[in-house]
Design a protein around this nucleic acid. Structure first.
Lengths: 252, 252
DNA sequence: CACCTTATTTATCTTTCGATAAAACAACAT
DNA sequence: ATGTTGTTTTATCGAAAGATAAATAAGGTG
């Protein structure tokens, strides 16, 4: 069945020395590359490709975007699933900044500054086309990756934010009074407000404010101003503005 | 190639009168149904099916879940795409409650009550497995449906909320001072905090608070308490607590 | 330059999936 | 009963789409 039909329609080999100028827009050239460099190229393009098309995106199209043939992908990854695993790793693991945790607990600075700096940088890292979409795609696919990632966020970020808020307001530490779900819920609402900006842009295709950082600042300020009263109620203690000011002064 | 192989492995026809008892768990029976009832069954199952599997879900599996054969779907819908269009319509159009707009502008009630009632009911309608997931799937697919839906939300809900907040605080009406993007951004943050609860549950598979309504109340209260100052700054006017109380008294 | 290693391509297999045509059969009217 | 209408199934097509084996050729080494 039609074996030689397709092959004859396009030149089988280029003359040596012919610069292989392709149509404009096509990949420069499927040059022979050292394996690790080719692998890097594949992973980089795969992240962009699957972010755009979803995980049902076809290996043939990915190969075309890379300017290579589809079977070559299978020399570097045993299956499409293995390539997807690599894509997750690339997006989740490699974009977490351990320094974020230090920022949040640097008590030489006002808490509001710390949260603003953290969320500004977090937004810069996470509110991107690739991150947001791959996160959603993997969530919809039912992978537990999202759950595991958000457990880390909860333990390392949310818990720290709450601990620092309590400290600033001279409230019991988490060791004395465990963090309630209601307190976590407050931080979730700040987190959601910021993350949802990325969803609006990269999933819904809406326009968002030019200056995302300014929005982060505004949301954080409102959060810091409004939350202590709620937290105080939740922990059973009271935190008046006076107590807050005192706590702030106490901080070196 | 193996034409009669598959057919011989299972009984081709049932004895008339045989009740066709199938394996437990299988659909009751592919009874012959009036077209509009069959169509309703298909649409209902299609919504659940595509919400779970995404729009790449296969027609064969959908048919199996319905207890019918796959070609029968094509008697009711000319193509898979047509069935998907029907699914969107079902989810978006049929779950919008026009009364919501009335709730928000009923000035005989305190604004906080109105927003709480609106968002409690909105959450009940929208924070469901099917709604949230189909909304995300269609967004990721690049459909403009999400954009069009959210334009409606913006014009009918957000704009009303802002107008009412201004009124309560004796600030200029939108006719006098147009609504700024910053004001919309404030309402977006409330909306995001609530909507994201659904994302956490139905996309990430996380546990959420038992009492979502209580969270809606808490978020709305914080919003109402915190926002007027910001809105006042944005409109160039001032809204002291005194002005707010006055405005509230003025409301019949 | 000849040779060897291995990156890359060509050709092809198998399965899956949307879609169609024709056969079968259930319900109803006469 | 018998015929007619229209729902449902059976059988099958053709085009993807993941994956594999064998052939090709680029680049380094003696």
């Amino acid at each position: 069945m039609g074996v030689s039909k397709g092959a004859s329609t396009r030149p089988k080999s280029r003359q040596p020395g012919t610069a292989a100028r392709k149509a404009p827009g096509a990949q420069p050239k499927p040059k022979r590359l050292p394996p690790d460099e080719r692998e890097r190229l594949i992973v980089r393009e795969a992240v962009a490709f699957f972010a755009a098309r979803g995980f049902e995106g076809q290996t043939r199209e990915l190969a075309r975007r890379l300017g290579i043939t589809q079977p070559l992908l299978y020399r570097y990854f045993p299956s499409k699933e293995a390539l997807l695993d690599r894509v997750y790793q690339e997006v989740y693991l490699n974009r977490w900044n351990p320094h974020w945790e230090d920022i949040l607990e640097d008590r030489t600075r006002p808490l509001e500054d710390r949260i603003v700096e953290f969320y500004s940088d977090y937004a810069r890292a996470v509110l991107t086309y690739e991150w947001i979409r791959i996160f959603m795609f993997s969530g919809l696919r039912g992978m537990d990756l999202n759950g595991r990632y958000l457990t880390v966020v909860r333990d390392r970020i949310f818990a720290r934010v709450i601990r620092e808020i309590r400290f600033e307001n001279a409230l019991p530490s988490p060791a004395e009074v465990p963090i309630s779900e209601a307190e976590f819920e407050l931080v979730w609402s700040l987190h959601a407000s910021i993350f949802y900006i990325g969803i609006r842009k990269w999933i819904y295709g809406l326009t968002i404010p030019d200056d995302v950082s300014a929005v982060v600042v505004a949301l954080t300020t409102a959060f810091i101003e409004g939350v202590p009263a709620v937290v105080a109620r939740l922990t059973g203690a009271t935190a008046t503005p006076r107590a807050r000011a005192a706590a702030r002064r106490r901080t070196p």
